[in-house]
Each structure stands twice: as structure tokens, then as C-alpha cells.
């Protein structure tokens, strides 16, 4: 996996919402893994769709981008795309650094 860190800038007035937001993303990653193991493509599609919507809204473009890969992979049943997206998501969440302005 890449050694890069991910820097995200979030609007200052959303700062107090971010701890809950990040906590939910980590739970989301766990749910993605469970759904992938169970080959539950419908749930994977829904999770991907949700990630797409919420990520960019908060300023986390990568969350939306990965969400799109998850949604596309779930629609087409592309397990390798899904596996790669979930790994990318895990990497992002472990390295992301957030600043506020």
C-alpha cells in the first residue's frame, strides 16, 4: 500500500461533527468487509452509494471516489475492484490528516 498520507481540509464550522463522522467511516469499513466476505453485493452497492454522497459533502473527496468504486464493483460483481477499493479505504482512514479552515 502507498506510504503517502492523505490531507483533507474541512470547513471550520463542521469541526465538531468530524469525530462522529470519522467514527462512522471506520464502522462503515468494517461493514464493507463483512458484506464483501458474504458476497452481499446489494449492501455493498448501498454502502458505496452512501459514501459517494457523504464524502464530498464534508470535503473528503477520496471517500466519494472510493465509494464510487465500491458501488461500481458491486453492480458489476467485480470482486477484485471491490477488494482493491476496500483496501484503499482502509489505507485512507488509517492515514488521513485533517485540517480546518
Amino acid at each position: 500500500m502507498e506510504e503517502q498520507s492523505y490531507l483533507v481540509t474541512v470547513a471550520k464550522d463542521l469541526e465538531d461533527l468530524i469525530p462522529v463522522f470519522m467514527s462512522n467511516r471506520k464502522k462503515e469499513l468494517d461493514t464493507l468487509r463483512v458484506a464483501f466476505a458474504a458476497a452481499d453485493f446489494d449492501q455493498l452497492r448501498q454502502l458505496g452509494h452512501r459514501m459517494r454522497g457523504v464524502g464530498n459533502s464534508y470535503g473528503f473527496a477520496q471517500v466519494s471516489e472510493i465509494g464510487k468504486h465500491v458501488e461500481d464493483g458491486a453492480r458489476s460483481g467485480d470482486r477484485s475492484l471491490l477488494e482493491s477499493a476496500i483496501a484503499q479505504y482502509s489505507d485512507f482512514l488509517s492515514k488521513v490528516q485533517i485540517s480546518y479552515e
Partner: peptide, 11 residues
């Protein structure tokens, strides 16, 4: 149904 989205819009 996504609490994060709801909180964001409300804010």
C-alpha cells in the same frame, strides 16, 4: 437515513 449527511445539512 445517513446521520452524517443529516448533521451536515442541518449545520
Amino acid at each position: 437515513d445517513d446521520p452524517d449527511m443529516a448533521a451536515f445539512l442541518a449545520r
